Computed example of a mutant assay.
Amino acid sequence: MTVFVLGGAQTDFARNFAKEGRGILEMFAEVVPAALADAGVSAADVGVAHVGNLAAELFTGQAQLGGLLVAAVPELDGVPSTRHEAACASGSTAVLAACADLESGRYDLALVVGVELMRNTDGQRAAEHLGSAAWAGHEAVDAKFPWPALFADVATAYDARYGLDPAHLGLFAEHAFACAARNPLAQARDWKFPDGAFGPDDELNPVIEGSLRKQDCGRITDGAAAVLLASPAFAERLGGDFPRVAGFGHRTAHIGLTEKLSTGGEYLFPQLRGAVVDAYRRADVAGPDALDVVELHDCFTITGLVALEHLGIAPPGDGGRFIADGGLDTAGINPSGGLLGLGHPVGATGVRMLHDAARQVTGTAGETQVEGARTALTLNVGGSFTTVVTTIVTR
């Protein structure tokens, strides 16, 4: 696989676009020119565009986002575009489609944009909209907050198999927010937490669903991210030393969490492990020891712990011990702050991860930079580990 990341951009994930009187159109109009400038290309160079988004119809009533992209950036008029939806992995599936376009030889430069506007309604309504990515009418039917309820079920299943210490989840959250404090675009960069905020204090850290507490759960976020991906020929013409998408993994399982958990085997989620192994193989990477940075999906703390084990960073059942021993820092896990700290505008997350991975391996990640990073992995999950997409970026 030879696709190059020329550059990209993201919006400030702390912003509430609805309160500013702005929406998806304005997100496109802001992030795309910034990404083009960072990549050193013009809109006229773009051969194809891909947009990642989960639920614009539910949150804003707006579909046909490819046309909205042209409305925001008129110079893209005539450029073919496709919108991709795979729950929280929507952005990464847009990235893979763009990579396929470039590898096929149809186009030499692709624009990928991920976008989600979610703070224009109250938290309960937002949770209901996001619940559309679960199995409607079959799971989390009586839950007030569908996704915290489903990932609480993941925590229960993990506990039954291995034993789960909630303190390890608290440590994962503390790491996320500490990293976010160094990221000038993070939603939680200015948040302050009193002593006890990551423990079992029902006032400071109330239970949301099941065993999951407030700090275990990602927040509703507005935001967009964009990257420019190029063929080898186009990148060579520019003459730069660009990071390369060296490999990927992409698998999809049954939409129902119960059905996924019933598969058995060495790993809790075989499809998650399969996508990881596919990426290692395609990128010719021996395994997690070859990674300098990992941007993994931590919409909930339990998601992050499970991901660590399926990446092979910790053996199954030992993710909590790895966290307690300080492994998150030494392994370069989510220096951006991850979804918990940086924020999770659903359709933008996979694109943002790729952008951050490229910045890390080029040494341009600023305050979040992992020293000497040359190889980075992204792991983006849609639904209850239903859609899994991994990429490996090298330089």
Rank of each mutant, 00 (worst) to 15 (best):
D122L: 01
L377W: 02
L204T: 08
L291T: 07
L36R: 06
D45F: 04
L354Y: 06
C217W: 05
E30I: 09
K192A: 12
G382S: 05
R119S: 05
L117K: 15
T2H: 12
T378I: 03
L150K: 11
V95R: 02
G218M: 09
L150P: 00
V32R: 09
R244A: 07
H250A: 14
G240Y: 00
A34W: 02
H250G: 00
E85L: 03
E20I: 08
T156C: 02
V227I: 14
V141E: 13
V293D: 03
L25K: 15
A34C: 02
P316N: 14
F145E: 06
G326K: 11
L308R: 12
A55V: 00
V73W: 01
G170L: 11
I392H: 03
V112W: 00
D202I: 14
A49Q: 07
T375K: 13
F385D: 10
H344I: 12
V70R: 13
C99P: 00
A286M: 01
P74H: 13
E266G: 12
G239E: 07
A181E: 09
T252E: 10
R395F: 01
S90T: 06
R321V: 14
A94Q: 09
G196Y: 10
E236H: 10
W135M: 11
R83L: 08
L169T: 12
T391I: 00
V70S: 07
T368G: 01
G210K: 13
A188T: 14
A100E: 06
T11I: 11
L36P: 04
A152R: 10
V227M: 04
G265Q: 15
S42E: 15
F269T: 12
D289I: 06
A224H: 03
V141D: 06
F59A: 01
A176E: 10
I302L: 04
T301K: 08
V351C: 02
C179S: 09
G287N: 09
D318M: 11
A29F: 02
A143W: 00
L379Y: 14
G210D: 10
V277S: 09
E103V: 13
F17L: 14
G91L: 08
S384L: 05
G163N: 01
F193G: 08
T375W: 00
V306Q: 05
E259M: 07
L109A: 11
G210Q: 08
P316K: 15
V277D: 15
E203W: 05
I392S: 04
A167I: 06
I323T: 15
V95I: 15
S211Y: 01
R15W: 04
R282Q: 13
R244W: 01
G52M: 04
V370Q: 01
G287D: 07
G249H: 08
H175K: 15
G338L: 03
T391P: 00
F145M: 08
L69H: 04
G372R: 13
E57I: 12
F234W: 06
A290R: 11
D153V: 04
R213T: 10
A94H: 05
D201N: 14
L171Q: 14
F234C: 05
G66A: 10
L268V: 13
A186S: 08
C179M: 15
W135L: 12
L68R: 13
A149I: 09
G105I: 11
A246W: 12
A49T: 09
R213D: 07
D195L: 12
G239S: 11
I313F: 02
